[in-house]
Amino acid sequence: KDKSDDTNPGGVNMDCGDGEEGLSLEEILKLYNQPINEEQAWAVCYQCCESLLQGSRRRHSRGAGGYARRIAGAADVRVRRDGTVLVQDGQDSSDKSRLSMFTATEVIESLGIVIYKALDYGLKETEERELSPPLEHLIDRMTNVVENDGDVSRDEGFEATEEEDEEDKEPQEVFNSRGFRNVLKLCAAHLPSPSDAPDHYQAVCRALYAETRDLGTFLEKIK
């Protein structure tokens, strides 16, 4: 473990006062001083998309388009006690540049980069982690590094693989949400039973939160 900061292992707030705010992915990485595992990556990705999709729907209901948030780093992703994930909303930031509107494609790309960096945490620049093909494919798709014959789909960087549903009849909602729903589908398809995705991924994040708190408490006691 990182011994550079003896007074606060991993820089995590150990007073259990995080309440609804949870633990940031950055805090989790620092505390463990190692990357997240693949299952956690799938889960965090899924839960982030759920959170962003909900935010998109709220903004859409207020007549707003675009995204005020592009995920700048692991500090912007907070895992809550119940396993839900909060993606920090730039709306309250004093940094006015974060109030710019971003497309869903840009937000998905930023999420893919954050997830990859969490998997790559602590590795040297000359090293590369060997990811399972499905997870590498997911990140490829999210960050749009897949070669696709120059025909970049405008449907948020993803092919329209799903049937039209009621939501798809609203053009603005399609623009905002299709990319996220396709990421959710890819994450669900990773499971033996895709219909279990909401419960499963929330449980993985809930365990990630609990284990991190336990480790933090343990390190505090040792200190």
Binding site: P35, N37, E38, Y116, E128, R129, I139
Partner: peptide
């Protein structure tokens, strides 16, 4: 805590890390 299990290889020019580092 148990260490995460993963394999590490030298960074490859055509690998995902190289592609993402250019973004």
């Amino acid at each position: 805590k148990e260490k995460a299990s993963y394999n590490v290889r030298p960074k490859h020019d055509s690998g995902i890390k190289a592609k993402l580092s250019m973004k």
